[in-house]
């Protein structure tokens, strides 16, 4: 039972990070209409910034804030300069630009900070003894910290969407850009802010997830996270923030339980399980759990 609980905690922690990464994907999808494949590598780049700041003596929390700021700027600048000129043409051009960004950001991080793995400190106490005992199982403090940050972040995003003028505009642009523009919403600015917001969320995901995994910060850190997050976003229905959060948690827990209880899969293969989840969702219910129906239309 306590082993089950520990695996559940592990799964919820990873799942919480997948959830916010999926949330970033959903925010971009709702505004731009495509999946941003480069979200993971943009987060990788900002995570390197946070790591680099810690090496020159800046405390990690300040580095995290800086990373989030850079994430916002990157997202906004990328949308304005690279996505907007091709977006009007077709979704395909947008997706290919995202593929270009994927490679370019990975190469940029490699160029600036070489390809060796870096030890990434954690925002929270992460020693082997920093745990609470819950029903005989160990709940580590850093896991608890991740949960709290993620809950706060998701709360903030929901408040933004549902309680502020900016959020209303974002939802209007996502729903129908033309009507929104005709009602005086500055759609261009809203799209830019949407990408910036996704950049912040993605950056936080990067800083939170890197110290959790046994492998430290490297150029390959974020791609698997992106795969899990895409599975989570698809699971929830690509255009639903609520779905992204539920999807992330489900995928995280499933991953932990499968890796724990199915001997054959362990090691590097849980990503295969995530892909199987993606494929099954697409086969059985392409709109996901909470997605709107028009998604199926081509």
């Amino acid at each position: 039972m306590d082993i089950f609980l520990e695996r559940l905690f592990d799964g919820l922690t990873n799942g919480a990070v997948y959830a916010i990464m999926a949330l970033a994907l959903v925010v971009v999808f709702r505004s731009t209409g495509t999946i941003n494949f480069a979200q993971g590598e943009m987060a990788l780049f900002t995570t390197y910034i946070a790591w680099w700041l810690t090496t020159i003596g800046v405390p990690l929390w300040a580095g995290t804030v800086a990373a989030a700021g850079v994430g916002f700027l990157l997202g906004a600048v990328v949308e304005r300069t690279l996505i907007r000129p091709v977006r009007r043409r077709s979704d395909m051009a947008t997706l290919i630009v995202a593929l270009g960004l994927f490679t370019a950001f990975n190469a940029l991080a490699g160029l600036l900070w070489n390809s060796e793995t870096k030890p990434m400190p954690s925002l929270f106490p992460s020693g082997l003894k920093d745990y609470l005992s819950v029903g005989g199982a160990r709940l580590y403090i850093d896991a608890l910290g991740v949960w709290l940050v993620v809950i706060a972040l998701i709360g903030a995003v929901f408040l933004l969407f549902n309680r502020t003028r900016l959020g209303l505009h974002m939802r209007a642009v996502a729903g129908n850009p033309e009507s929104a523009a005709l009602s005086g919403v500055r759609t261009g600015r809203i799209l830019m802010l949407g990408w910036g917001l996704a950049g912040i969320v993605g950056s936080l995901a990067g800083v939170l997830v890197t110290p959790l995994s046994p492998q430290q910060l490297s150029l390959q850190t974020m791609f698997p996270i992106l795969i899990y997050a895409s599975a989570a976003a698809l699971f929830g229905g690509l255009d639903s923030p609520m779905g992204a959060v539920v999807g992330g948690l489900v995928i995280g827990v499933l991953e932990a339980l499968i890796t724990g209880y199915v001997e054959f899969i362990g090691g590097t293969l849980p990503q295969t399980a995530a892909l199987v989840v993606i494929v099954l969702i697409l086969l059985l219910r392409p709109t996901g759990l909470f997605g709107t129906r028009q998604m199926e239309r081509l």
């Binding site: 999946i35 494949f37 395909m92 593929l99």
Partner: peptide
């Protein structure tokens, strides 16, 4: 949609 082939193939 086109995105789905893209995400499945890249993964």
């Amino acid at each position: 949609r086109a995105d789905y082939l893209a995400i499945v193939t890249i993964a």
